[in-house]
């Protein structure tokens, strides 16, 4: 069964690539519109240097936004999740902000912080922190009440309750929040780069697309997409290992 599944997967990918190549080479599709896979691969060499620099810069920004986003978001989520009053007050706003296109705030951020690194990071943090808070908060609220009641019946103080019961019990949600955090901080960074048009791989991709350099755009898209997929796979593997121990 496993081999059949693998065959279908690999087969589909190969079929798509082959069909694609044929369509372009036979002239059914304008190479400007859809460059051939072969031209995409060869364009890698042309842009290698600048692409790597931009990519590095983007990843750096992503990391910073991620650290700030989860560093603030996880504690906030725990506190809001653990306190009914705080939840009632803040949850609607956090959820509300999450459900709207947050990009609309980007120009406002730029008005305050100017075009540059700060706006980029601020927006990426905003993009990251909201889902992290929501996930962690949800995880805390879903803890089996019995576990908490039991600790309280033993006379546990607030700090003990949080450190010995709430945080360990919410660990699975915290792990999910970390996974989400990386994806969202990358997403936020890219969006900000494309809007601010200054530097980073998001900007590079957009600039190349305006210059009609199709093959290069496709190449970069492939690189960034693959990178994201690798990050997700690695994170999933890690979180599975951790979950086995915890659950």
């Amino acid at each position: 069964m496993q081999t059949r599944v693998l065959l279908i997967q690999v087969g589909t990918v190969i079929a798509v690539v082959v069909l694609w190549e044929i369509l372009v080479i036979e002239g059914f599709v304008d190479p400007l519109f859809l460059p051939s896979p072969s031209s995409i691969i060869s364009s890698f060499n042309k842009i290698q240097n600048i692409a790597l620099n931009s990519l590095f810069e983007t990843l750096l920004k992503t990391l910073i936004a991620f650290l700030i986003g989860v560093g603030l978001g996880i504690p906030i989520g725990i506190v809001i999740g653990g306190n009914e009053l705080l939840h009632k007050i803040f949850h609607p706003y956090v959820f509300g902000l999450y459900s709207i296109p947050r990009i609309v705030f980007l120009p406002l951020i730029v008005l305050f912080l100017g075009i540059g690194f700060n706006s980029n990071i601020f927006y990426a943090v905003l993009h990251t922190i909201l889902p992290v808070i929501l996930v962690v908060e949800g995880g805390v609220r879903n803890i089996d009440r019995r576990l908490i009641v039991y600790a309280l019946s033993l006379g546990a103080r607030r700090i003990q309750l949080y450190s010995k019961v709430i945080i360990p019990a919410a660990m699975p949600s915290i792990l999910v929040a970390l996974k989400l955090g990386i994806i969202f901080s990358l997403l936020g960074t890219l969006i900000a780069e494309m809007y601010l048009s200054l530097s980073g791989i998001g900007f590079l991709m957009q600039k190349l697309s305006y210059a009609f350099k199709s093959a290069e755009v496709f190449a970069l898209t492939g690189v960034v997409a693959s990178l994201a997929m690798i990050i997700v796979l690695v994170l999933s593997a890690i979180s599975k290992k951790v979950e086995e121990k915890w659950l």
Partner: peptide, 8 residues
Amino acid sequence: VPSVVWYP
């Protein structure tokens, strides 16, 4: 994959 990657 961060969706905005497909936009260009």
